[in-house]
Amino acid sequence: MILAEVVRSGFVESVHHGSVVVLDSAGTVKDSAGDVGSPFFPRSSNKPLQTVGMLRAGLPAREAADLALISGSHLGEPFHALRAGEILAAAGLSPEALGCPPALPASERERDAVLRAGGAARRILMNCSGKHAGMLATCVANGWPVESYRDAGHPLQVALAQTVAELAGEPIAATGVDGCGAPVFAFSLTALARSFLRLVDAEAGSPERRVADAMRAHPELVHGTGGDDTVLMAGVPGLLAKGGAEGVQAVAVPGVGAVAFKISDGAARARMPLLRAALRRLGVDAPVPPVPVLGGGETVGEVRATW
């Protein structure tokens, strides 16, 4: 299904295929396009569900901001690395315990700052370091081994898989290895949208609601300065958002509904135009700026949704 197109100087230059589902407030499919029932890997859109699993397993979250970072894919700004380090320190661990690969900040500005200062890639700067810090803290709280925490058969990952399957409302079809080295779980696009709706509609104080409330209260820790998820959650009251690699996005608004989609070619540029179009079907106007197509440094076209 063609969901977005790239228009340059009045001509369609290329198109983006994918699948999208829109749910109403009751979790019923209101509209969809493409394959929304077959399993796929939601990538980092899994993270809020995994954080719920960590809380259920005894994650000793010091404050809501910790949950936001653990659920996020941060840009590697100094305040992200600082909080990830604090989560580890509270568990008696150092950044060397992190099992995610070393990386430079995802933020171009911060990456340049690190390199100018003579710095290099570090695990704590990797965009998933918050999630890994939370996983390690959960292991320490339970007396589980920390060296093997990424293994799919580890007690932590077994517990997280059970929680994700429960929230998704369907069995996990496959377990893969995400870009950060931790397990990632496959289920349908419709299940992803419903799981996010469960988070925002959960009873106050429950693990599900604690994660949703923390992310919405601290969107800058979920993504970072100017990041899509940060802008979305800051701009629409009550909205919960989490993107994932390879063109995945999930969003839910309490009392309104939810949206989830996957761009087949993984293109990030199609995500926000499509999300704006999908949310409008729920009557939500998201603060999403146009995505320009440049020629010679000037705007000569745009990426626009066709669905």
Rank of each mutant, 00 (worst) to 15 (best):
M1G: 11
I2H: 12
V6E: 11
V7K: 00
V7T: 02
R8N: 12
R8K: 09
R8M: 10
E13V: 05
S14M: 06
V15R: 15
V20D: 11
D24F: 03
D24W: 07
A26S: 12
V29K: 13
S32H: 05
S38T: 06
S44G: 12
S45H: 12
K47L: 08
L49N: 00
Q50A: 13
T51V: 15
L59D: 14
A61E: 03
A65W: 02
D66V: 10
A68T: 10
H74W: 07
L75P: 02
A81K: 11
L82A: 15
R83P: 00
R83Y: 06
R83A: 03
A84K: 04
A90Q: 02
A90T: 04
A91Y: 11
G92Q: 04
G92V: 05
G92I: 05
S94N: 04
P95H: 08
E96Y: 00
E96N: 01
L98V: 01
L98N: 08
P102N: 12
P105I: 04
L115T: 11
R116L: 13
G119T: 10
R122A: 15
I124G: 08
L125M: 11
C128V: 14
G130N: 05
H132T: 00
G134A: 07
L136M: 01
V140I: 06
V140P: 05
A141N: 09
E147R: 12
Y149V: 15
R150W: 07
R150A: 15
D151F: 03
P155V: 06
Q157M: 11
V158H: 05
L160P: 00
T163M: 11
E166Y: 01
L167S: 11
L167H: 14
L167K: 15
A168C: 08
A173C: 12
A173H: 13
A174N: 09
G176V: 07
A182L: 14
P183N: 00
V184M: 10
V184I: 12
V184D: 04
F185Q: 08
A186N: 01
L189K: 06
A191S: 14
A191W: 04
F196M: 14
F196L: 07
L199H: 10
V200Y: 13
A202V: 01
R209N: 00
R209H: 04
R209G: 00
R209K: 06
H218W: 14
P219Y: 10
L221A: 06
V222C: 02
G224V: 09
G224R: 05
G224S: 08
G226A: 10
G227L: 04
G227F: 03
D228F: 05
T230A: 03
A234K: 15
G238T: 08
L239A: 15
L239R: 11
L240R: 08
L240D: 07
K242A: 01
K242E: 03
G243H: 02
V248T: 08
Q249T: 08
V253K: 00
V253Q: 00
G255P: 03
V256E: 02
A260G: 13
F261Y: 13
D265R: 12
D265M: 02
G266R: 15
R271F: 01
M272R: 15
M272N: 14
P273T: 09
P273C: 10
P273M: 11
L275R: 02
L279P: 02
V284H: 03
A286P: 12
P289Q: 14
V291P: 00
P292R: 11
L294H: 07
G296H: 09
G297M: 04
G301N: 14
G301I: 09
A305H: 02
